[in-house]
Design a protein around this nucleic acid. Structure first.
Length: 267
DNA sequence: AAAAGGACCAACCGCGGACAA
DNA sequence: ATTGTCCGCGGTTGGTCCTTT
C-alpha cells in the first residue's frame, strides 16, 4: 500500500524559512497550540508543508530550545546514551534538556562519529578520570529489548569507549532568525533598531549582536550565544542526576535495573 | 586575494507506528 | 481485518560558512 504525500508540493515554499514565516508560525502556535500540523499551514496562512512547519517549530522556534555549543557534560551524556540506545536520537534528546534530536544527530555525525572512528587509529584515549565507568554496554539483553520494543536492529549500538578530546573553539555566531529576528525587525516595529528590552528577555545570554543588511522579509540576526539563562542551573542539575543514575546502573549487577532505566527512556 | 575543499547544520524525504473509520 | 491519515523518527541532502593552500 503506497502512501499519499503528506501534502501537495505544488505552490508550496521550500528551503530556508523567512522571518515573516517564522512570525506567522509562532503567532499561530501561541494562539492555537501545537499539533494538527497537516491543517496548520492552511489555517495559519503559510505556504508550507505541515511537516516543514512541525520541523521548524520543533527544531528552531520552540521557546525552550537551548542554544549554544554542546557542553562537555552534554557530550559525555550523548556518547553514553548513544552507547546504550544507538541512533535513537529522539530518546537521547529527551534526556538533554533543550536540545533537539536533529541537533544531537548533527553533532554526532559531524563531531563524535568521526572522532570515535579516528580513535581506532589514534593513541589518544578518552579521559578515564571523567569517564570512570566503562562506556561499553554490559548487557546486550537490555539493548536487544530496547530495539525489539522499538522495532529496530541493534547494529547501530556503538561500543566505543575511547575518544580523543576535541579542541575548544570560541562560541561561534549562531543564526537566529526566529522569534529574535521577528522582534528585532525594524521594519515591522517601526523603530530605527531592535528593542534591547526584548533582547534582554530572551532565554539566551548574548555576548554580541549583529544584524544583517535588511533583505525584504528576511532580516537575520547573528549573535554569540554564550549560555542559556533560563533554567541553566536546573539543566545542569538534571544532567548530573542523569549521570549519576546512569553510572549507578552500570555499576550494578542487576540487569533488571538497567532495563528499568531503558523503560523510563521509552515513556 | 582567490580558489578549493571541508565542516557544519537547517531542511527535506521516505518510512513505519498509531489510530480512526 | 482493511484502508487511509497523521505524526514522529532517522537518514540524507544541499547551501553556507570556514579553513587551508
Amino acid at each position: 500500500m503506497g502512501r499519499t504525500p503528506c501534502c501537495s508540493k505544488v505552490g508550496l515554499h521550500r528551503g530556508p524559512w523567512t522571518a515573516r514565516e517564522d512570525k506567522i508560525l509562532i503567532n499561530y502556535i501561541r494562539a492555537h497550540g501545537e499539533g494538527h500540523w497537516r491543517s496548520l499551514p492552511k489555517k495559519a496562512g503559510l505556504l508550507r508543508c505541515g511537516k516543514s512547519c512541525r520541523l521548524r517549530w520543533m527544531n528552531y522556534l520552540r521557546p525552550d530550545i537551548k542554544r549554544g555549543n554542546i557542553t562537555s557534560d552534554e557530550e559525555d551524556l550523548i556518547i553514553r546514551l548513544h552507547t546504550l540506545l544507538g541512533n535513537r536520537w529522539s530518546l537521547i534528546a529527551g534526556r538533554l534538556p533543550g536540545r533537539t534530536d536533529n541537533e544531537i544527530k548533527n553533532y554526532w555525525n559531524s563531531h563524535l562519529s568521526k572522532r570515535l572512528n579516528n580513535k581506532n587509529t589514534s593513541s589518544a584515549t578518552y579521559n578515564k578520570e571523567k569517564c570512570s565507568v566503562t562506556c561499553e554496554p554490559r548487557n546486550n539483553t537490555s539493548i536487544s529489548k530496547l530495539n525489539k520494543m522499538k522495532g529496530k536492529n541493534p547494529e547501530n549500538a556503538n561500543h566505543e569507549e575511547n575518544y580523543t578530546k576535541t579542541k575548544i573553539h570560541l562560541p561561534k555566531a549562531v543564526r537566529v532568525s526566529s522569534a529574535v529576528s521577528v522582534s528585532l525587525n525594524s521594519k515591522e516595529s517601526g523603530s530605527s533598531g531592535f528593542d534591547e528590552a526584548e533582547v534582554q528577555n530572551l532565554p539566551w545570554e548574548w555576548s554580541g549582536l549583529e544584524i544583517s543588511e535588511p533583505n525584504d522579509d528576511q532580516n537575520v540576526v547573528y549573535g554569540y550565544v554564550s549560555s542559556c539563562q533560563n533554567d541553566i542551573e536546573t539543566n545542569e542539575n538534571m544532567l548530573d542526576e542523569i549521570f549519576e543514575e546512569y553510572e549507578q546502573l552500570l555499576q550494578t549487577d542487576t540487569d533488571a535495573e538497567l532495563d528499568c532505566f531503558i523503560d523510563s527512556l521509552l515513556v
